[in-house]
Amino acid sequence: MTFLRTATLSIALLTANGAAIAADPPKPKLGADATPITADHAYLKTAAAPDYWAISPFYIHQQTSSACSLASVTIAVNTLRGLPAMAEDTLVTQDNLLEATKDERWAEQAADEGDGVTFADLTEDTAQSLKAFNIDAKVEAAQPTKDTTATLDAFRALLAANEESAKDLMLVYFNQGVVTGDWDGPHVSPIGAYDAATDRVLIMDVDREWYVPYWTKTETLFKALERPAPADQGVLTGETGGWVHITMK
């Protein structure tokens, strides 16, 4: 959401008396709980994967350090709206989505170094964005730390149902570091696919300065939904995540 990243440098530090202290070794791009699509795309070669192919043409990067919600909802609106038929009609961009919703709160949260959105904000932003572009869809949200019915089994069942067609899609609000092994903070991205045989989810991460889409175990992602934002996340401190399910009516 708000990315206060620093690159890890492989250098030695010196103490006051000149003794060397080894710096932390550089981290791999992804930790053990994430597999990039560049290394594993077998599922996409054998399964229909309707959501992945529907989302891919509209897959974009977040335009600021805090615009993951804005990028994710823009992807959702474009995917469900489809390619406009007429030459004069543009695709939905992050900027014209903000213009269409006229939401000053969201614009401030999604600005560079903005606070980022809460889970409740994401749900509201999704609903108002669909309405702004006349997309007749139902928005349902669930937050495991607050909803006793939002269990891991329920999440798996919804992922499986969502994988059946491109008439619905899911956004997840999750702790990115639980999955990637790096930055510890809240993040939003769409779900691209669910491989039930391996119980893995494909996250179409909009943090494209750093990542490509990656697979992670459903259980790992569920833990990322439950992890509270750490104390350095300002107004989002303690915020937990969940999923937003959008279904065309």
Rank of each mutant, 00 (worst) to 15 (best):
A107C: 09
T118E: 11
Y52T: 08
D184T: 15
V201R: 08
K249Q: 10
T93S: 15
L158H: 12
A67Y: 00
D199T: 06
V212Q: 11
G242V: 01
Q62Y: 10
T38M: 04
T79G: 03
T240I: 09
W243R: 13
D153Y: 03
T2I: 13
D121P: 08
A100M: 08
A197H: 07
P190E: 03
V244P: 09
A22H: 12
A120Q: 13
A154P: 01
E164W: 06
C68Y: 05
V73G: 03
T8N: 15
T93K: 12
G116R: 00
D125E: 15
G177K: 07
P26C: 14
N162F: 01
K27N: 15
F222W: 05
A231C: 14
H245V: 11
V139D: 01
V172Y: 03
Q233E: 10
V139P: 03
D205W: 02
D115S: 14
G116V: 01
Y173C: 14
H245Y: 11
A48P: 13
D40V: 10
T64D: 04
W53L: 02
K131P: 06
S66G: 02
K102S: 15
A76F: 00
A141M: 00
F119C: 12
D33Y: 11
A224M: 05
E108V: 09
L70M: 08
A85G: 10
S129H: 05
C68W: 05
D199Y: 08
E113Y: 10
W183M: 09
D205Y: 04
D112T: 01
F3E: 12
P36V: 06
K138I: 12
K138W: 12
D112H: 10
D207Y: 14
A12M: 14
V188H: 03
A76T: 03
V188P: 01
T35Q: 13
S129K: 02
F222L: 05
W106N: 02
L171I: 04
G238A: 06
P230V: 13
P228Y: 07
A107S: 12
I60F: 03
K146M: 12
L158A: 11
C68F: 02
W243Y: 13
N134Q: 05
W183G: 06
E219K: 10
D153V: 08
T93H: 07
T145M: 07
D95T: 15
A160Y: 13
D205F: 04
M248T: 11
G234I: 05
G192W: 03
I203K: 00
K102W: 08
E108C: 04
Y194G: 06
K45P: 00
A231S: 15
V117R: 02
L83A: 12
W106H: 04
D95K: 12
A100D: 06
A34Q: 01
T247W: 13
T149M: 09
V77W: 00
V73T: 07
V206Q: 04
V73E: 10
I37F: 11
L4C: 14
Q233H: 11
H61R: 15
D205T: 11
G18T: 03
T240F: 05
T35G: 12
R227F: 10
T237R: 14
D95V: 12
F174N: 03
L13K: 15
